[in-house]
């Protein structure tokens, strides 16, 4: 087995991710778990598991990122913005615009042709426009994640969810349900509303810029489709999108 030189840990608001890489940045093993409240304990346990999988010694370098990064004993601590950009550039080898929709925030990162972060923007403190927003509303609608795409595709029309605040959007959805609106149409409208928010955060993306997507929400194909429809552009979802931040942290720590 190729030697593991570094491990990147991304402690997000909803999931805990780690990636072990070799000297060329190839992913040797990874772990994705739901984030636990006791970050230190989860990190200690899961990191030991990952190290055992790749037979990494104590000398392996650790890079940490994500909201819980300060709770990780690491050789290098970097923000998700830098790590997602590094991870994405490593996989694509080119610049472009990266849309990362995570649990707690949405980031639009402009990456230069040499992998530098040229600029970035994020949603403000409101959770509207994040993975959490989707999660809250889907839970209220009792739609499990694996049914989302099916219901989205079944809906002929869509009912827009207009509120920009997660809390108000939830009550708006409750009202729509009470009015007897079709759940599938609300699901479709919900995704389109979120896509619209993300697109306005992204602003004008130059036509020659490729658009990539990372973060847990990239696994939601209805969301990707809504973004494609909204932007009128092709969007490339990176492999294992949830792991891009951890990959970037591992690469930076090498």
């Amino acid at each position: 087995m190729t030697e593991c030189v570094s491990i990147g840990i991304d402690v997000g608001s909803t999931t805990w991710k780690a990636v072990a890489v070799d000297s060329k940045g190839n992913i040797l093993a990874s772990i994705v778990e739901e984030a636990e409240p006791l970050i230190d304990r989860q990190t200690e346990r899961a990191l030991a598991e990952l190290k055992a999988q790749v037979k990494a010694g104590d000398g392996v370098r650790i890079g940490a990122t994500g909201y819980g990064r300060k709770r990780v004993r690491a050789d290098l601590v970097l923000t998700e913005i830098t790590c997602h950009a590094r991870g994405a550039f490593h996989l694509t080898g080119k610049g472009g615009v990266l849309i990362d929709i995570g649990g707690q925030d949405t980031k639009i990162i402009k990456i230069g042709n040499n992998g530098d972060v040229l600029d970035f923007s994020m949603n403000d403190k409101c959770a509207a426009g994040t993975g959490r927003f989707l999660e809250v509303i889907l839970k209220r609608l009792r739609v499990p994640f694996d049914e989302v795409a099916l219901r989205f595709n079944k809906a002929v029309n869509s009912i827009p969810v207009s509120n920009t605040c997660t809390v108000f959007a939830e009550s708006e959805v409750v009202s729509l349900v009470a009015e007897g609106k079709e759940i599938d149409e609300i699901v479709k409208g919900l995704h389109q509303s979120l896509a619209s928010r993300v697109a306005s955060l992204a602003g004008d993306i130059p036509p020659d810029s490729e658009i990539f997507m990372s973060g847990g929400v990239a696994l939601n194909e209805s969301m990707v489709k809504s973004l494609v429809d909204r932007t009128g552009r092709r969007i490339r979802v990176l492999n294992s999108p949830q792991l891009i931040g951890a990959l970037g942290a591992a690469l930076a720590a090498r």
């Binding site: 970097l78 923000t79 913005i81 830098t82 972060v117 970035f120 403000d124």
Partner: peptide, 16 residues
């Protein structure tokens, strides 16, 4: 103010 988000923006700005 969302302290953590503001701090992250500042740090990400400086990291690059």
């Amino acid at each position: 103010l969302s302290g953590e988000q503001a701090e992250m923006r500042l740090l990400a700005f400086m990291e690059n």
